[in-house]
Amino acid sequence: MTGGFERTGLTEADVDRLAAQIGLTIAPEFRAAVARHLAALLTAARRVDEFTLPESVEPAPNGES
């Protein structure tokens, strides 16, 4: 997975602090890769976040229409 790590400003210490909030311990050998993937996810999430939606749009996770 590419991109985002530097732009998000995320650090491995951030990963540990966030993980602790949900009772998760990230092993040291996984931490760098987790930070890289989280940065990529944040990049994707912010791409969605920056798009202005009409206020009337609700979450509707049902595919039937």
Binding site: A19, H37, R46, D49
Partner: peptide, 14 residues
């Protein structure tokens, strides 16, 4: 593994 671990940390608002 690393993708799933990362995803646990994403804010629910996103």
């Amino acid at each position: 593994r690393d993708r799933l671990l990362a995803a646990t940390l994403l804010p629910a608002t996103y």
